[in-house]
């Protein structure tokens, strides 16, 4: 860790109007700085500066970006969290098809159908190129084809980058599914059987909202990966990120230029540059929010993942 002198700290604080990411193991800090002088408490907090340095500042300067306990009203749900741009980085070099991400996603979103929101694809571009495992879900595109074609504004793009579905409004035309080049969307062809789960949770605290699209799922409407806004609200990482034993998934904020997989926190721009990050089907100009790092220098053999691979199943059904 770098020693910081008083002067550079003051400089740092001047630029501190920008939101910064906290260095906590699993949480993403939602912090900004007050410009005016405040009485110092003596308690220090570690933060990551825009230059990538770790700094210690007094807790009095740190203020929560917004009150997390306040439920967003329905209009805010469509607008998203201000001044944030959520992104994901998926490191293909680390993925060995452990499928923990898929089961965590299925469990926490109460997936009732036969098609998971998040799937690990067995990929091989051509006969002579190497096969690899590729987790893929909604890409939360900045130019989402699904949103463009929706006739009723049921699926929408928020300022924080997240694409969500209001399944109280969706008419079930499935045009968004036809439009999505990533096959990210799934449909509730019948009444979703979330029965046991629904009984086990306290329904009084669940207000149907696009931010909790997995609960309840609605017959005749479209579902998909929601980037776990309910986790973000709690200051926690999406289920797939925290469930992955291999640190494949990084999640974070593009404006903060920071992503974390829970174990390590890195600069988004740096990791994309160092590891030649790319996005899926860049040529389509959908501008995804999900970045991939190529499957280079893999620690494990691709074949090790084959044991778990099931071409015809992504949601485990109780037998």
């Amino acid at each position: 860790m770098k020693e910081q002198d008083n002067n550079s700290r003051r400089n740092f604080l001047k630029k501190g109007g920008l939101a910064l990411g906290a260095l906590s193991a699993t949480a993403i800090a939602l912090a900004s700085f007050q410009k005016e002088a405040v009485e110092e408490t003596g308690e220090k907090v570690k933060l990551l500066s825009p230059e990538g340095d770790i700094v210690e500042i007094d807790k009095a300067y740190v203020k929560s970006a917004h009150d997390l306990n306040l439920p967003l009203d329905s209009k805010k749900i469509r607008e998203g969290i201000p001044n944030r741009k959520f992104v994901m980085v998926i490191d293909l070099a680390r993925c060995k098809n452990a499928l923990k991400c898929v089961s965590a996603c299925n469990k926490n979103h109460y997936i009732a159908g036969k098609n998971a929101w998040l799937k690990v694809y067995k990929m091989q571009e051509s006969k002579d190129t190497a096969p690899y495992w590729m987790p893929s879900a909604c890409q939360h595109c900045d130019q989402p084809a699904c949103v463009t074609v929706c006739p009723v504004d049921a699926t929408f793009k928020r300022r924080d980058g997240i694409v969500l579905i209001d399944n109280e409004r969706c008419i079930g035309c499935r045009f968004c599914m036809a439009a999505c080049p990533y096959s990210a969307r799934v449909f509730n062809w019948e009444e979703p059987d979330q029965g046991e789960i629904m009984m086990n949770i306290d329904m009084n605290h669940v207000v149907p909202s696009p931010e909790h699209a997995g609960l309840p799922s609605v017959k005749g409407t479209v579902d998909k990966c929601d980037f776990c806004p309910h986790q973000i609200d709690k200051g926690e990482l999406p289920h797939c990120v925290s469930a992955c034993p291999n640190g494949v998934f990084y999640f974070g904020d593009k404006y903060e230029d920071t992503v974390t997989n829970g174990d390590e926190t890195v600069r988004l721009s740096k990791i994309l540059e160092d590891k030649a990050g790319y996005r899926l089907m860049e040529g389509l100009n959908t501008q995804p929010s999900v970045y991939y790092l190529p499957p280079k220098n893999r620690s494990d053999d691709f074949k090790d993942g084959l044991d778990k691979y099931n071409e015809f199943q992504s949601v485990e059904k109780p037998t």
Partner: peptide, 10 residues
């Protein structure tokens, strides 16, 4: 589709 059809019943 662009991505292979996987993880769904035959």
């Amino acid at each position: 589709p662009f991505l292979p059809i996987q993880g769904v019943p035959e």
